[in-house]
Computed example of a mutant assay.
Amino acid sequence: MAIHERIVYEGQGIPQEVLDAVERASERPINFDDIPPMTEEELKMVAAMPRGHRATKPKNNLTMHIPQQTIDKAREMLGEGYTGVLRRLIVKAVDHPELLKDCL
């Protein structure tokens, strides 16, 4: 059995082929026979992972004044999760000097 991995970002639609594959997989039984039980120490390590990840990548809040029509258009085009898409756009734009130059 092959393992397939795909990253789906907030606000991005999930392709129908992926939904179909998940549906087919959900109909198959899960075999846990080859998975050893986790120790208490391992469980604590796994539980601490998200906290550690958040601590290494702190984010700050930023308040911006954006025209309402721009917000409405982004919400209409991108749907739920549009703010995450806008955040990623800003992050990418800051890394491209030619795009920044156009905006100055």
Rank of each mutant, 00 (worst) to 15 (best):
T70D: 14
T70K: 10
I71M: 13
I71D: 12
D72C: 11
D72F: 11
D72A: 15
D72L: 11
D72T: 14
K73Q: 15
K73V: 14
K73N: 14
A74T: 04
A74G: 05
R75I: 04
R75V: 02
R75H: 13
R75E: 13
E76Y: 15
E76M: 15
E76D: 15
E76L: 14
M77H: 13
M77G: 11
L78A: 14
G79Q: 04
G79F: 11
G79A: 09
E80C: 02
G81Y: 04
G81L: 07
Y82Q: 01
Y82S: 01
T83W: 06
T83S: 07
T83G: 06
G84Q: 00
G84W: 00
G84R: 00
V85W: 00
V85P: 00
L86T: 01
L86G: 01
L86M: 15
L86A: 03
L86K: 00
L86S: 03
L86Q: 02
L86C: 09
R87D: 02
R87S: 06
R88E: 09
R88D: 08
R88P: 01
L89F: 08
L89S: 04
L89G: 05
L89N: 07
L89R: 04
I90E: 02
I90P: 00
I90A: 03
I90R: 00
I90H: 01
I90W: 03
V91L: 11
V91Y: 12
K92A: 07
K92M: 03
K92L: 02
K92D: 08
A93N: 12
A93D: 03
A93W: 04
A93M: 11
V94M: 06
V94C: 06
V94P: 00
V94R: 04
V94G: 00
V94Y: 07
D95W: 07
D95M: 13
D95A: 13
D95N: 11
D95H: 12
D95G: 09
H96E: 15
H96T: 13
H96N: 15
H96A: 12
H96K: 12
H96R: 11
H96L: 13
P97V: 00
P97I: 05
P97S: 07
P97C: 02
P97H: 05
E98A: 06
L99A: 10
L99I: 11
L99P: 01
L99D: 04
L100W: 08
L100R: 09
L100M: 15
L100G: 06
L100S: 05
L100H: 06
K101T: 12
K101F: 10
